[in-house]
Amino acid sequence: MTVFTEAVHAAAFILSEANGHRSRESGILASGQNLAAGTVLQLNGSSKFVAFDGDNNTAGDLIDQAVGILLAAGDATGGDLEVAYVARDAEVNLKLLTYPAETTAGGQKADTIASLKLLGIIARD
């Protein structure tokens, strides 16, 4: 029997958001990125979106904060791509988000949740 694996659908991770389109914004996904819906985002040096890396400095603080969550899958392998993302004031299902995997040092999940919280995005487990 063939087994099919279904990807996360656009906006499937959203539990609730602000009225109207207040939670959402648009921006540019950097060339070379191919990201699934629900990927936590950060800005690169040219103010374009890339996947959140959760990297810390020597003091243990995040180098780059999350700026939002990609609303729908985006394939920018052929060049920059305009995308929509959740930028603020929402509740999301943590199990449907893509964020950095825990390393041996740990803390990536907690750092991701804390960074999103600064935007008013609450990640529910």
Rank of each mutant, 00 (worst) to 15 (best):
L81D: 09
K109M: 12
N93C: 01
V40M: 15
S115W: 06
D61I: 00
I69W: 12
I28Q: 05
E102R: 09
R124N: 12
T98P: 01
G106E: 03
I69D: 05
I63T: 07
T5A: 07
H21F: 14
D55Y: 00
A7Y: 11
G107V: 01
G20R: 12
G107W: 03
K117W: 02
I113G: 09
T98R: 14
S23E: 00
G120L: 08
G106D: 07
F52T: 01
A123Y: 05
F13Y: 11
N44D: 15
L71E: 06
A76C: 07
I113C: 05
F4Y: 05
T77G: 03
D64C: 12
N19Y: 04
G45C: 11
L97A: 07
A11F: 15
R88A: 14
L118I: 04
Y85G: 06
L116G: 00
G27T: 10
T77A: 09
N57H: 06
G38P: 03
P100M: 11
K117T: 10
A18K: 04
D64R: 14
L41N: 00
I69G: 01
H9W: 02
S16R: 13
A90M: 06
N44C: 12
K95Y: 08
R22V: 09
F4A: 11
A10I: 03
Q108M: 14
L15F: 09
I121L: 03
G68F: 05
A10Y: 02
A37H: 04
Y99C: 07
K109L: 10
V67A: 07
Y99I: 04
Q33P: 03
F52Q: 03
A72R: 11
L41C: 06
A7G: 06
P100D: 10
A7D: 12
A18V: 05
G27S: 09
A10S: 15
S31W: 01
A36C: 14
L118A: 15
A51H: 13
G106H: 08
N34T: 02
A30M: 11
E25Q: 11
H21T: 09
S47Y: 07
D75E: 13
A72S: 15
N19H: 09
A76P: 08
S46L: 05
V40R: 14
F49A: 12
L119R: 04
G79S: 08
T5H: 12
I63C: 05
E25D: 02
G38T: 05
H9G: 13
A87L: 04
N34H: 08
L97S: 00
L43F: 15
Y99E: 03
A76N: 01
G68N: 03
R88K: 14
L116A: 11
L15G: 09
A123L: 02
